[in-house]
């Protein structure tokens, strides 16, 4: 299980974009790909311009894109950006599954010793 190389600039943009709670929330909502910037902005106690700025940062990191849906433009989460994070979590899951397997075998081994 090798870590696939990522462009450092990509990593910086992605993690900078993910560093903000509002942007993470926008990402979640935009997975549905049904709301435009104005609709997204209605969920937050901040100005339309502020939300627009967050969306622009997410767009710059490749985490969302704007696409036409009929007459409107909707914001949609780009799953590839999230996949980078998901792939890393998969590797940590494998690491911890290995650890828990070893913990289990240690417990089993001491039981046999006690018996």
């Amino acid at each position: 299980m090798q870590v696939m190389p990522l462009q450092p600039a990509t990593i910086d943009r992605v993690l900078g974009a993910l560093a903000d709670q509002t942007r993470r929330d926008i990402l979640r909502r935009a997975m549905a790909g049904q709301e435009g910037v104005a609709e997204l902005a209605s969920h937050y106690a901040m100005s339309f311009a502020a939300v627009q700025k967050h969306v622009a940062i997410l767009e710059g990191a490749g985490l969302v894109s704007k696409e036409r849906s009929g007459r409107r433009k909707v914001v949609r989460t780009e799953m590839e950006g999230l996949r980078v994070a998901q792939r890393l979590l998969d590797q940590y899951e494998a690491l911890w599954r290995g650890r828990i397997d070893r913990m289990t075998s240690l417990i089993e081994a001491t039981k046999e010793t006690d018996a």
Binding site: V3, V14, L15, R102
Partner: peptide
């Protein structure tokens, strides 16, 4: 961050990590 996740994985990861079965048998 994802960058940190990669750095930690580089420390102490080897291919086939989940194949810890041999190790378990050895401990037992």
């Amino acid at each position: 961050s994802t960058a940190a996740m990669e750095q930690y994985l580089a420390m102490g990861m080897e291919p086939g990590l989940t194949e810890a079965v041999g190790q378990i048998d050895a401990i037992l």
